[in-house]
């Protein structure tokens, strides 16, 4: 199990994650949804070790989660200028058994010998994804991985995620597009005001959208209509 217990993270006086506790089964695909500012990225950044939690613990199979246990794709990816895709992928340490870069790239079809500066945003996203996945870690965290991907690449990503699960990897994904999550996830969790409001299993995805929006104030729609 991946257990998050009593996790609290604040920026100044503002509590972004508020005593969050949740247990996530391993070797599964978990989706995380929530409105902008709900705390999704903060939670993932904390799991990745980028942010130190004010209090609480994150345990994986009973041991504190270490940075070495996970591979993390951020919402916005960093690329050094004037380097090629091949040089970039060379920075990610791949364990024995992972195919070499050219073999790996057969899935992504990227022009690896060109400078990354000339890549489109979708190609950059695929390159970052290729690097993250090459590390072959037991936990893979993908923050908005479908952003900027075309239909074909989104399909490829869904296939890769499903394959990762089959190989025993635990995957956590966030997305604003509910459909992209329901297609691959085993469980989806709604984060609101720094807390997990509810979790749904695959069998209950049919009513998910309804459940997410049931608390939205109907006056909000009137407000939009009155402004635009």
């Amino acid at each position: 199990m991946l257990e998050i217990e009593n996790l609290t993270i604040s920026y100044g006086d503002h509590k972004v994650i508020d005593a969050l506790s949740v247990s996530l089964s391993v070797h599964c695909i978990h989706g995380l949804v929530g409105m902008n500012g709900a705390g999704k990225t903060t939670l993932l950044n904390t799991m990745a070790g980028f942010i130190r939690a004010g209090q609480g613990t994150i345990l994986m199979e009973g041991n504190p989660l270490k940075r070495a246990d996970l591979a993390f794709l951020e919402t916005e990816n960093f690329f050094y200028s004037h380097i090629t895709g091949r040089e970039y992928l060379g920075l990610f340490k791949a364990p024995a058994g992972v195919p070499d870069i050219d073999e790996w790239n057969r899935m992504f079809s990227l022009p690896l010998d060109q400078l990354i500066d000339g890549y489109s945003s979708g190609m950059k996203r695929k390159l970052a994804l290729a690097g993250v996945l090459r590390q072959d870690k037991p936990l893979v965290i993908l923050d908005e991985p479908f952003n900027g991907l075309d239909l074909e690449s989104s399909r490829l990503l869904s296939l890769i995620i499903t394959r990762l699960k089959q190989r025993g990897t635990t995957v956590i994904i966030t997305s604003h597009i509910l459909g992209s999550l329901t297609g691959v996830c085993d469980h989806i969790h709604l984060l609101r005001n720094g807390k997990i409001m509810f979790s749904r299993d695959k069998e209950n995805f049919a009513t998910l959208e309804q459940d997410i929006f049931k608390d939205v104030d109907p006056g909000f729609f009137d407000l939009v209509n009155s402004i635009i």
Binding site: A48, F50, R67, A68, Y80
Partner: peptide
């Protein structure tokens, strides 16, 4: 520097 998080993901 913009590469701090990136470096954290590839180097201890």
């Amino acid at each position: 520097r913009k590469d701090y998080h990136f470096l954290l993901t590839i180097a201890p």
